[in-house]
Design a binder for these strands. Structure first.
Lengths: 216, 216
DNA sequence: ACCTGAACACCGTTCAAGT
DNA sequence: ACCTGAACACCGTTCAAGT
């Protein structure tokens, strides 16, 4: 009888490889993803992968772009509402795949990301903002979405929320109360959960600021 | 006569190691920095390093914190001006050491970064903004500084400005003009240099937005 | 106390060989 | 056309040995 060592052995293909890589990164983080690792999970030897993809870099690019396909492009709403909803959806996708925000930065956009860029830039174009403000607004919004999510994730890097809370307690315990009272108070605000969602507040602050600047 | 193979052989120390590592990262990027690499440059064998630092992770943390020591903490100005100047100085340091922004995210703050946090949080505290807005403002500003710089650097990853420009031309050449007219126009705005410095504009937009929200 | 050298357990990838 | 196996040139780090 054939051995049942390999959990699955679908025929190899670009999409099968990318999809398995995404699963693996969701489980172990992107640093737990090696070519040998991935091949084993698929039931093949390492070098079999190279018949379908050029190298690991290409694989990582495809992973981000595949994940970007999930981003909503809401239609039938005001441009500023479309921008806001698209930003929220991008953020949701980046949270769902915590490895994606970092790779998004390091890799050139593929088709799905280009489509998302085009959607967002069109919404800005139709928003009535001046050309210059639309340009800056695009960067302000994308920077906020990606920067905020990245910063947030870096604090809980590869750990459950419970571990993250312990890390915060350990961090403030290491500070001298005299010299660092504001920092300690700030971290306590996080632990108390007293601060509402900063992300949406700043998102709206930027959107409102753009509209106001344009009115001047 | 003793061979002069090793360019320098100062006695090894934590500071000497960190300083050499920073030089090496400035030259080749952080991915061109290996322990073997670094040891060779210092004129020692790899394992000599481990008498002074625990592991590579600790080294990277020390590198970021050393660089953070260069950030200005202006005194004798209005809190909002201090915040603005500190943000500009942080950005300047991150541009001077292009590898630092990424490591800043991935490593816990050391003494210098804690001092910078404390400075910024104190300025927000003294700014007259409400406690809640001060908290959100701190995140909005730091996210903008780091997110914007990171995004900017990712486009020119390890290449001179000239290569970066070629890459942008290649990128728009790969797009179908019909489906991606807004994206193409956006990239052209970058190439024309017609867009003024987005960084300061959005920085002020956020600061002004915070003040206005507080006034309501 | 500090440095060295061999070794271990990993990487991504090339290349020749199989079917 | 696709898969395999051995090999290469790297990693970070452990551990025993030297001074």
């Amino acid at each position: 009888m054939p051995s049942k060592q390999t959990p699955q052995r679908q025929p190899l293909s670009r999409t099968a490889i990318v999809s398995a890589a995404i699963d693996l990164a969701d489980l172990d983080g992107v640093q737990g993803l090696s070519m040998r690792n991935l091949a084993r999970r698929l039931g093949f030897e390492v070098m079999a992968l190279y018949n379908h993809i050029a190298n690991k870099n290409e694989l990582l690019s495809m992973m981000v772009d595949t994940v970007a396909e999930q981003i909503d492009e809401p239609s039938g709403v005001e441009p500023l509402q479309a921008i806001r909803a698209n930003a929220m959806s991008t953020r949701a996708v980046l949270i769902k795949h915590p490895w994606a925000a970092e790779l998004w930065l390091k890799h050139l956009p593929g088709p799905a990301r280009v489509a998302q860029m085009e959607f967002l830039l069109r919404a800005f174009d139709e928003s009535g903002l001046s050309k210059d403000l639309a340009h800056h607004g695009f960067h302000a919004i994308t920077n906020h979405v990606h920067g905020y999510t990245l910063q947030e994730q870096s604090m809980t890097l590869g750990s459950d929320p419970e571990e993250a809370e312990d890390a915060m307690h350990a961090f403030i315990a290491s500070l001298s109360p005299n010299d660092h009272s504001h920092t300690i108070a700030h971290v306590h605000q996080h632990l108390d959960g007293s601060t509402s969602s900063s992300f949406e507040l700043v998102l709206d602050l930027i959107l409102d600021g753009l509209v106001r600047l344009d009115g001047q």
